[in-house]
Amino acid sequence: MQAESSRAWGLAHHFDNFEQQREASYLGMWVFLVTEIMFFGGLFTAYVVYRSANARAFALGSKELDITLGAFNTAVLIGSSLTMALAVWAAQQGKRKQIALFLVLTILLGGVFLGVKVVEYRAKIDHHLLPGPDFHFPVTEVDEILGVQEGNVEMFFNLYFAMTGLHALHMIIGIGVLLVMVVLALRGSFSRKNHNLVECMGLYWHFVDIVWIFLFPLLYLLGRNI
């Protein structure tokens, strides 16, 4: 189509035009998010199967979680989704400085989330709620009569750590990519025509946010009223 020399900067050699490039990267991102859904889906399946088998033990485990910190973190993540959306908006307008600003804000909010997560994990470890040889959960006599065993509660924490850990890993990777993008934004790599990376990262960040929106009620809220 176009001669090599007249090709716009930022358009990869194998695409005909920016539109094709943009559509390809969006579709790619969506397909990637589908794989992510399937990935978390396996864990959610395990959670549903085991929760239905050990409802009371899971509720007891759930009670050990700090609902205040969980709710705070939910708010923080939703805030970070907002700043991420603003970064995408800035990219569409071609406003470089604002892209960088909103990306930095997103990173900060993500960092706050992870910091709170560390505090929560630390508290669980101190209370011997980390699955493994050190795990200890005092099951009251009443609960024992109700069929709750320490192992069932441990299963809750297995899944708690697996699910929130995997989620946190996604956050860490996301923050890493955002850091690179801040540098790119300051260097002026994004233009009104070419800002696929920002948009794709926006999709990713919202996805990670949505996973948490499911994790929070499943792990923190369900069955607290026992």
């Binding site: 088998a53 009371r56 024992e144 009569i145 109700l146 069929g147 065993q149």
Partner: peptide
């Protein structure tokens, strides 16, 4: 092994586990 998992209607969860 898990007496309370499927409790018959009208009975209290009194039985201890033999696990």
């Amino acid at each position: 092994l898990e007496p309370t998992a499927k409790l018959v209607k009208g009975y209290q969860p009194l039985m201890p586990t033999y696990q």
